[in-house]
């Protein structure tokens, strides 16, 4: 009996030692030389593996960041400046702080404003629908409403609003990884700077048709009238092929464009007070009057 026990213990011990030796040798032989900083960088990453940086995941980003000579082309939109500062500290690089961004849906063709002309009965995917035809409304540029962006978001920041048929971005959850913008076949979603205290102004339409055509398709469409561009005193608005675009870098959030837009295509969000259109319009009229007077005087002199 005792013999058996002793033998068992002996065999198992010898076996254990032998196997440990084999493991040790194999590990040594097949050891992959890796920059230890990759692990360090990976540790400070958010770990969402969303691909927002353009790499397959956080590990791939870490590898690329360690290999690169600087951090100019590598930025983790999810972690933002905090994470990038940590990465920079590990690698000894400089990092340019970027303004935090958020996904913005540039379509406000609600069910009411944009009547459905036909009914789509295929697979509920914007990509499939876009490949088939121009969509179930008269607007061939607007949101298709099948929610490919919602499916693409790995942070649960997007949801479809059943009342409007449009996606809604939860600014708290949005990390500006850009997955939704890539998934949208109509390229409606844009990453824009969040703005001071989240305040920002943008044109919520991408319809490039001429005014009357766009208007017929959707009551809320940008008709390319250019009123906003004429009104803007900061040269922040450019007209590109029948649509206005507000450059967030130049916009001073005066909300004058929003007030003059005849179709309500320009949206301002997170402002503390609702827009008093009449007051702003009066202000613009006042300014124009003064300018006209000044011009008259200048002409006199």
């Amino acid at each position: 009996m005792t013999n058996t026990i002793i033998w068992t213990i002996a065999i198992i011990t010898v076996l254990g030692v032998l196997l440990a030796l084999v493991l040790f040798l194999v590990a040594k032989k097949f050891r992959v030389e890796e920059d230890p900083r990759i692990d360090e960088v990976e540790k400070v990453m958010p770990g969402a593996n969303c691909g927002g940086c353009g790499f397959a995941g956080c590990r791939a980003f870490a590898e690329a960041a360690v290999k690169a000579p600087n951090l100019d082309d590598n930025y983790c939109p999810v972690g933002g400046n905090d994470v990038m500062a940590k990465v920079a500290a590990i690698l000894g690089y400089e990092v340019k702080a970027k303004a935090p961004q958020v996904a913005v849906v540039r379509c406000n063709g609600t069910c009411e404003a944009r009547p459905r002309l036909n009914e789509y009965d295929g697979f509920a995917s914007c990509a499939v629908k876009a490949a088939l035809y121009s969509g179930d409304t008269g607007c061939s540029y607007g949101c298709l409403g099948c929610g490919d962006c919602v499916a693409a978001c790995s942070f649960g920041a997007l949801s479809m609003d059943p009342a409007t048929g449009l996606p809604v971005v939860d600014e708290e959850k949005c990390t500006a990884c850009g997955a939704c913008a890539k998934a949208c076949p109509k390229r409606i979603i844009e990453l824009r700077p969040k703005g001071p205290r989240g305040m920002r102004e943008y044109v919520s339409c991408v319809n490039r048709d001429k005014g009357p055509v766009a208007k017929r398709a959707c009551a809320n469409a940008c008709i390319g009238c250019g009123l906003c561009a004429k009104t803007c005193t900061h040269e922040a608005i450019v007209m590109e092929g029948n649509i206005a675009y507000i450059d967030p870098a130049k916009c001073k959030l005066c909300r004058e464009c929003e007030a003059v837009c005849p179709t309500g295509a320009i949206h301002g969000v997170n402002f503390p007070k609702p827009l008093d259109k009449d007051a702003v319009k009066a202000r613009i009229a006042e300014r124009k009057k003064k300018a006209a007077e000044a011009a008259k005087e200048a002409a006199h002199e």
């Binding site: 002309l117 036909n118 009914e119 789509y120 499939v128 035809y133 179930d136």
Partner: peptide, 8 residues
């Protein structure tokens, strides 16, 4: 009524 559209 509204026509249905779908892929083939």
């Amino acid at each position: 009524s509204k026509m249905i559209v779908s892929p083939s």
